[in-house]
Amino acid sequence: MLALDLCRRNLLRLHFGQDWSERDGWFGRLAAGDDWSEAAWRTPGGILFVPHGASAPDEVPAALYDARWLAGELERLALPAACRLLLDTPGVPGPARSQAMAAADRVLVVLAPEPVSCGLLRPLEVELRRHGIGPDRLLFVLNGFDPSRQLDRDVELLLRETLAERLAPLPVCRDEAVREALAMQQLLPDYAPYSQAVDDFLQLAAWLAVRLAAGTEGR
């Protein structure tokens, strides 16, 4: 398992318990002309994790202008076939996001249980089609779901009707343990092994594994 943070905001690292002041990441190394894969970390659980690293607001390494740079680099890493690759993309279109689209087999869209999420679907599908990713390669999951709120339930109902099989069968619950784990700089399963969110993530992982196995050779 390899997780790669492509978002400039450099936040994924906090979920992995990285120190707040840590500035290293693939972006900085790439800009400096070093081997970016040197920035990888290994968690105690055996997950390889590459943080984005600190960056100046408008800085873009030249390599990123080649749309298939990331795809090529990942091939070069020669990861074992069983290794799954998770790319955390920025929320808005940009060069890093395009890199991810070019390299990915599937796109998992994380939706908030908000009415706006329903409005997001259409533009997203258009954008992805431009990258050659059809709707069948799109998967969705609801995150931060609170069943006690009527609107959350309505949004799920609506999304389930539109997305059917493509929406993960279980949403990820809005569980305080997720935020607390981040604040405590621990991985969620270490911090709260019995929380609902851990259960939900496991279910999500199982569902993803099945969906990926059902499609073409996944990464």
Partner: peptide, 12 residues
């Protein structure tokens, strides 16, 4: 079922 505790945590 999921139990939602007053402090916002959830337990399966």
């Amino acid at each position: 079922l999921t139990l939602h505790l007053p402090d916002g945590k959830c337990l399966p």
